[in-house]
Design a protein around this nucleic acid. Sequence first.
RNA 1: GGGCGGUUAGCUCAGUUGGCUAGAGCGUUGCAUUGACAUUGCAAAGGUCACAGGUUCAAGUCCUGUACUGCCCACCA
Length: 710
Amino acid sequence: MDTKFIPADHEKNLYEFWEKNGYFEAKQDAGKKPFSIVLPPPNANADLHAGHAMYVYEDIMIRMKKLQGFATFWLAGADHAGFETQFVFEKHLKKEGKSRFDYDRDTLYKMIWDFVVKNRGTMEGQLRALGFSLDWSKTLFTLDDKIVATVYKTFKKLHGDGLVYRGSKLVNYCTHCGTGFSDLEVKDEEATGSLYSLTYTIKEGGSITVATTRPETMFGDTAVMVNPQDPRYKDVIGKTAIIPIINKEIPIITDEYVEMEFGTGAVKVTPAHDFNDFEVGKRHNLPSVQVIGFDGKIFGTGTVYDGLRVATARPKLVEELSLIAKDHAMVVKTCYKCSRTLEPLPLEQWFVKVQPLTDSAIAALKKGETTVIPKRFEQRAFDWLENFHDWNISRQIVWGIRIPAWKCSECGEWTITDGQAPDKCVHCTGKTLVQDTDTFDTWFSSGQWPVATLKALGDDYFDYFYPTSVMETGYDILPWWVCRMMMLGIYMTGQSPFGTVFLHGMVRDGKGAKMSKSKGNVVNPMLMVEKYGADAVRASLVFGNSEGNDAPFSEDKVRAMRNFANKIWNVGRFIGMMKDADRDSSAAPQNDTASKPPELGKDIDSLLTELEKEFTILQKSTIADMESYKFSQAFNNLYEFLWHRFADYYIEQLKSEAQSGNIAVVKKLEEVYLSTLVLLHPFIPFVTEAVYKVFNGKEASILDNKQLHN
RNA sequence: GGGCGGUUAGCUCAGUUGGCUAGAGCGUUGCAUUGACAUUGCAAAGGUCACAGGUUCAAGUCCUGUACUGCCCACCA
């Protein structure tokens, strides 16, 4: 054995040994209990970041359950990550001086496909480097035919059950990225904007002034609104206001929604470009006039403003009308990808009517079919589920699963299929059908991931492993993903897709600050693996943290854990040397103690008993802690025991005895040491397996150890 | 405006159902060492557990309030 544990000399070989010998392959076994986790599929196209390393909790659970004799299955997969990937690809195109508009749909799709396929191996290699015991023999991709087939089927079923409808609503639309988003994808930015006073002449005489942050939308105004209780405007209700420049006449109406104290107490109503106004418009049967296009430019006003972007039109209008502005703290909705301001635009989309789905998810949580750990996140799940709006699942991008809906050119109705192009319209039997150009929101398909994957592998897998045991992921995607998986999983199968939701925190830098490129504090986990080994990286994320809390990640901490791995290695090395010494001394002719059994001194005897006892308690508490998802505590106890009790105390106390040839002492040390390795293995698989092999032979694996079987 | 966290050694954090003489990692200081490991060992310094009340034989741990701080959500134009 080397004097140091050098991860690079072992990790790759050990991983290959496990993978080649099928240690990670799931097998249904009627004699065993199943334990399954579906890996949140990382973006196929991107490198792993520190957050992905937190999936170590899944590896810990899987390896522990394997050691306990369960039939385990950790399902690997990759996500096409629709918009995310297309966004990256477009940046890539831009570098070559091109844009998405230079290609037709099929070509663009094909190009992105090749781009993703080329990069996908990187991510998978990184998961391997972290030592994750994923079953690679059953890897799936979110665009695999069988997965897509399930997504089509679900959509059709939802439509058939009246839970999917086509609706024209306002959508937060990014005119730069060319797509709309769901509520969850919108990022609010605090900003100091300007609140302008905009005056409309009243036809019957006088004028009315409204307060607005977006004067340019006045071209699309279809009413001016005041509070019915407002004495100031008593006389103008029902009269007609005239929009400046275009001289369009619009009514002055009343609605309780107007806050008298805000601004001037009068509001312009633009149903086509404001969410509140859209609702007001519906209540009062106001027409909706769109004046901002999907390209972000003003149109249809018949003025010089046509063709101007909002950002250009606004100052121009402010100048032309000499509008007076006041600083105003406001929230601007921006694109979470490109950070540009979003425009609310009217668009026909497919919506999922969420209430029946959220109801069943809430019920599953209430009756404990699924439990959330840490508990505080369960409340959050309830809050989300109770407040979901109908879910817009259409995205105006190419990279994704195209929606299997065809519009009839004759009757204008939609025909939904489970994938194949229909030969005729189901409403009027018309033959000219055009497929929707939109694709599904990625979360609509990934929301079906646990069901779709197991179904794709075959009913025997589905029947044995569904519902899965644990869903482990970051708390940040509880609403996006976890809630949707419950909603859709229950809808598809009648059962919640997982028994436990275990949420981990965000990885922070060494100072506890959010990692971000602009701050330059991003720690690359793969670099740390190269430098200090996967065991060290894994351990550093678990050690001294509390589950569900954000976890600081720093080189210092990784180094400390590297030292621990090395300590484990050297304890093994020392015990190995003692064994060799015993062999040598018993072979020595002048050794007369070899003929009689070693007599344990009283002190030695009680030390060994004490050691045995201490280990037994440790093993029990480790199992109990892990059952209750207190992985960090389990690991900290193991660390403390192996280093500061076993090595610093017991070995030091028993050192001379062992060196002078007391076989019983060496044997006991070896026994407890190897048993501790088994408990440590889920956390730091490489060094434990490496040492285990030193003691048990090259072909042995600690994963075959039966110490934890019942 | 709501909701949820956090506030414990110089730094980053643990502290499970109240029993703590309050811990860890890193950092700091001193000593040790050619035979498992300097990626080491031994020892030490360092905390009125944010603040104010309360419950209790006993509170870092439970309750109430305050301050500061972080995150999430929300249609005031």
